[in-house]
């Protein structure tokens, strides 16, 4: 028997845009505040369904600090009609919002371990709440390593925060870009190559990976080759989510609905499915 859902799960609520930050040419971070109900708590890794009135609704991961109960933060890349409309939202405009939905990163399980974060492109956004949590509760975790890959230096996300995190003695940050001109003095290459160079203790490490699926597949392969167990690698999946509550089936990924059972899933559970193009 399917349990009854809260009556308003499918009903977007009005949220006001209180801030807009342009992160790069087509990536924007929106700060949102509720116009109707208290701000619900969220887990790092969860997502909301954001609704641009008259255009449509898309799932967008939360990218702010879960400890900030004054509102939600979302980082959006303008790639389709809805995400473009959302990214063009002006301060004081109103959007529809349902959520938060899905499973977050396994922070309780990660307690006591070294943490390796592997983020590709906009994949750093769903991982930023994790980083905030790890930094705020660093006494519960070992060494924190953040590996971030980007297309070019101009597209590095949250650049000033990465620089700030790098100054902490318990955090290592490595950034790479796929291509650069000679004015870039950092690393050039793909993210999995950073995994090989990173200094960490594989048996004592839990890895959180987020980015384009191809990047996650090869990052997971690099982590396995480095000695991180498949059950200690967690990835954030992306599929075509519609209802966000595991009813409509649009985001079915084998035996899982990404919206309900994910988006964060253990790699050992889905590794074989990642190799199936039809899924």
């Amino acid at each position: 028997m399917i349990p009854a859902l809260p009556p308003d799960t499918m009903m977007p609520e009005p949220w006001r845009v209180r801030s807009v930050v342009r992160e790069s040419a087509d990536v924007y971070t929106l700060g949102l505040e509720s116009l109707s109900s208290p701000v619900p708590p969220f887990l790092p890794g969860q997502f909301n369904m954001l609704y641009a009135f008259g255009v449509g609704e898309v799932p967008i991961s939360l990218s702010g600090d879960a400890a900030d109960v004054s509102g939600f933060v979302h980082t959006i890349r303008a790639v389709g009609a809805v995400s473009t409309a959302l990214s063009q939202a002006q301060p004081d405009s109103v959007l529809g919002l349902r959520g938060p939905f899905g499973c977050g990163w396994p922070l309780t399980e990660a307690s006591g371990h070294d943490i390796l974060i592997v983020a590709g492109g906009l994949g750093l956004a769903p991982l930023r709440p994790v980083i905030y949590h790890l930094l705020a509760h660093s006494e519960h975790f070992g060494r924190i390593t953040i590996l971030h890959g980007s297309r070019s230096p101009a597209e590095i996300l949250f650049r000033s925060e990465l620089a700030m995190w790098q100054t902490r003695p318990d955090v290592s940050v490595a950034i790479t870009v796929d291509h650069a001109d000679p004015t870039w003095h950092g690393h050039v290459g793909v993210v999995p190559a950073l995994v090989e160079r990173a200094v960490f203790d594989p048996p004592g490490t839990i890895a959180f990976v987020c980015g384009p699926e191809v990047m996650m597949r090869f990052s997971a392969a690099a982590l396995l080759a480095a000695g991180v167990g498949a059950n200690r690698i967690h990835v954030s999946m992306e599929r075509n989510m519609k209802c966000a509550i595991g009813l409509c089936g649009h985001c079915q990924f084998g035996a899982d609905f990404v919206c309900r059972d994910g988006p964060v899933l253990p790699y050992d559970r889905i590794a074989k499915r990642l190799a199936v193009p039809e899924l």
Partner: peptide
């Protein structure tokens, strides 16, 4: 082999805009 694979990953422009 690792460098060839890395070059292929760079070639597919994994962070580029998805085709419309």
């Amino acid at each position: 082999v690792k460098r060839m694979q890395a070059a292929r990953h760079q070639l597919i422009d994994v962070y580029g805009r998805p085709p419309t």
